[in-house]
């Protein structure tokens, strides 16, 4: 077996070449196999392709829409705004969501909360892991989007996407461990059983970081839903396209509709109504920058839990539970012990 390969860091990125796998190993099994594909495509097929597919074929562009309640609506306002690459080239038009879209998103998140929070932690973990699987399968697209949005070189973009995929895996592994780490039995004096366990707080409005179109976004969204909350996310205003593509991944990963809702548009237009919304339980202001203080003040009216922006977040660092526990409540249960 090709032992050296196993040491390479990002193993899951390496694609099977088939030959390496079987080398020197007793055949994996006598499992029934489907017939192999023909060795080379026939010349005829190539000829027909050349005849039918024009050389300068016009690409079909994607319409970037919102992601609300598991569906992809345009903004109810009918508006959009141009999104450009780091060097100023026009990339696409993104939907310019309105306050009403924000309201719809909160409604969807609230509706989804009951089901999502009641799922077993294991099931939530499986779904988050599935997100990683599906994201891995579309990594090339995301690498391109990160390159376009941030103007970083391709190898850095590869690392950013890899870290984003692995972050889903990381939180997939947390779902069924949070309670053991953050909860436990309490040795109260007296004949009482006393036990504390964390529970999700509810609907969390997330102002995603303005930089880090994928890794930053994933780093703030995944911990919120890992804990059993549902989310309304305001994507990076400058670089929202990867967020919409991520929504497509979420929509095809068995994540129930409404658990994550993604709005694109002006942060200054969307964040205030969310911060003040009485049916929002918590607020992550990571991407709010200099709006943060005002939003926090608005959130105070209904005593929302608030996570303030960090000055210079390092999205590669191990986040631990730092972004999970702020969105959890602790519930303590007492019960007498006696015959």
């Amino acid at each position: 077996m090709a032992k050296s390969r196993k040491n390479e860091g990002n193993e899951s990125v390496a694609k099977d070449d088939g030959a390496a796998r079987g080398e020197g190993v007793v055949a994996v099994t006598a499992r029934p196999k489907v017939p192999a594909a023909p060795k080379r495509p026939s010349a005829d097929l190539a000829r027909r392709a050349a005849a039918h597919v024009p050389a300068g074929r016009l690409a079909v562009r994607k319409t970037y829409k919102l992601y609300v309640n598991g569906a992809f609506p345009r903004s109810e306002s009918g508006r959009s705004y141009p999104v450009t690459s780091a060097d100023g080239t026009h990339l696409a038009n993104a939907a310019l969501a309105s306050r009403k879209d924000a309201r719809d998103a909160v409604q969807a998140a609230r509706k989804a909360f009951g089901g999502w929070s009641q799922r077993t932690a294991y099931n939530r973990g499986q779904i988050l892991y599935r997100v990683a699987e599906v994201l891995e399968g579309r990594r090339a697209q995301f690498v391109q989007e990160v390159v376009d949005a941030d103007g970083v070189d391709r190898s850095l973009a590869e690392s950013l996407v890899s870290a984003a995929i692995d972050r889903w895996v990381y939180y997939a592994g947390w779902t069924d461990k949070i309670a053991q780490v953050a909860g436990g039995s309490n040795p109260v004096s007296g004949p009482y059983y006393n036990h504390s366990a964390p529970e999700p707080t509810g609907v969390v409005a997330v102002v995603a970081p303005q930089s880090g179109p994928l890794l930053g976004l994933v780093s703030v969204v995944a911990p919120v839903i890992a804990g059993g909350n549902t989310a309304v996310v305001v994507a990076s205003e400058r670089a929202p396209l990867a967020a919409v593509s991520l929504a497509e991944v979420l929509a095809t990963s068995d994540l129930p509709g409404g658990v994550v809702n993604i709005l694109t548009g002006r942060t200054a237009e969307l964040a205030p109504p969310l911060a003040a919304h009485a049916d929002v339980n918590a607020l992550d202001l990571t991407g709010a920058n200099d709006m943060a203080a005002g939003l926090e003040e608005a959130a105070a009216a209904t005593l929302k839990r608030v996570v303030r922006p960090e000055p210079a977040p390092d999205w590669f660092a191990d986040p631990g539970l730092s972004r999970v526990t702020p969105f959890l409540e602790t519930k303590t249960v007492w019960h007498p012990i006696g015959i």
């Binding site: 973990g125 997939a172 592994g173 779902t175 069924d176 461990k177």
Partner: peptide, 18 residues
């Protein structure tokens, strides 16, 4: 399957195991 999935998640969280 659940057992492997569960402990898979612990691999990079051992510092939280108390």
């Amino acid at each position: 399957a659940a057992h492997f999935f569960y402990y898979a998640g612990w691999a990079d969280k051992l510092a939280h195991a108390g």
